[in-house]
């Protein structure tokens, strides 16, 4: 059953600990529940009309204080040692810089290559320096049982060593606004040869597995501007079919008269090229009235910006 893949050395450790604590808890739960039910039946008013007034039993009470304490401290100890393992990266680990922003992840490798999907090598340690440029995010790879908060102004470190080839989910775990649940990516565990070919290859060398496979099939053949907007999360708030969502729709936006809220008050503007560019580059300067001031600044190249504006212009 594919409950949750186990794909790193730490995952193996964590699952073992999990199983032990689970069995221990189950034994206690069953014991306590069975005892309650047994007592309720055995000492029901009918069977046992006169209660015995037992105030306590010192030895028993000491036992059930000390035994749980020892068990809990043991759980602490094994929890700590496994955690310590996840914190101490081997020296030969490749260091990748992970940056979270509303609502994407980006990965920067030591030689400067940058991707929106993480590539890791089978059986080789990789250390992640996790950071954020705007607000808190949580970087989480369930298959590796690993997580680190992405905190602006701070670098949090985790490391892993993949034990299985394959593609595994990356999810954001700290609420970060409207597209929190689409702040997803993947980690792809590949063979060393494949990784090296890409890593040391020229700019534009094919990524370890076909990039086309990344784009979900239902989006194949869509306009290029949409492919630019989709990973940046634009379409989470702006529709292209005329329906207002968190933000105004793109359809018919160009040339429209809009009332906008600025720092100094209300203003009436026409949505032309300049206004659209401004709305993307500095979203909080002018916010269309009736919509929340919520749009993050999303990095976008000049050429890409032109293409997005041109697309919106055409969307009548």
């Amino acid at each position: 059953m594919n409950f949750l893949p186990k794909a790193s050395t730490f995952a193996t450790q964590a699952d073992k600990l999990f199983l032990q604590i689970f069995v221990l808890s189950l034994v206690f739960l069953v014991f306590i529940t069975a005892l309650m039910i047994y007592f309720v039946i055995k000492y029901s008013k009918k069977r046992h009309p006169k209660a015995e007034q037992i105030e306590g039993h010192t030895l028993l009470e000491i036992t059930w204080t000390v035994v749980p304490l020892l068990l809990f401290v043991a759980i602490f100890y094994y929890g700590w040692t496994s955690y310590d393992y996840a914190r101490r990266a081997p020296r030969d680990a490749m260091v990748v810089k992970v940056t979270g922003r509303q609502w994407t992840w980006s990965f920067k490798y030591p030689n400067g290559k940058q991707t929106d999907k993480l590539y890791a090598v089978l059986d080789r340690p990789m250390k992640l320096d996790v950071n954020s440029v705007d607000i808190l995010h949580g970087f989480y790879i369930p298959a590796f049982r690993l997580k680190a908060d992405a905190v602006p102004g701070r670098t949090n470190t985790i490391w892993f060593q993949p034990t299985r080839l394959g593609t595994y989910d990356i999810q954001c775990t700290v609420i970060c606004g409207v597209n929190h649940s689409s702040m997803l990516s993947h980690v792809e565990v590949v063979r060393e040869k494949e990784f090296k070919a890409w890593y040391f290859g020229p700019e534009g060398a094919p990524e370890p597995t076909a990039v086309a496979a990344l784009a979900p099939p239902e989006h194949a053949g869509e306009p290029e501007a949409l492919a630019l907007m989709r990973p940046r999360g634009c379409l989470g708030c702006h529709s292209i079919d005329g329906k207002p969502m968190v933000g105004p729709t793109f359809r018919g936006l160009y040339g429209k008269q809009e009332e906008v809220v600025t720092k100094t008050g209300l203003a009436r503007v026409t949505m032309d090229d300049e206004r659209l560019r401004l709305a993307i580059l500095e979203p909080s300067r002018e916010v269309v009235r009736g919509y929340p001031e919520q749009m993050p600044v999303v990095p976008i190249g000049d050429d890409e910006l032109n293409r997005v504006v041109a697309y919106i212009k055409e969307l009548k």
Binding site: F18, Y78, Y83, Y85, G138, P142, L146
Partner: peptide
């Protein structure tokens, strides 16, 4: 208690 164990919390948190 499971979450109190550090190694498990790294997985279960949030």
């Amino acid at each position: 208690v499971w979450q109190g164990a550090l190694a498990l919390d790294i997985h279960l948190h949030d």
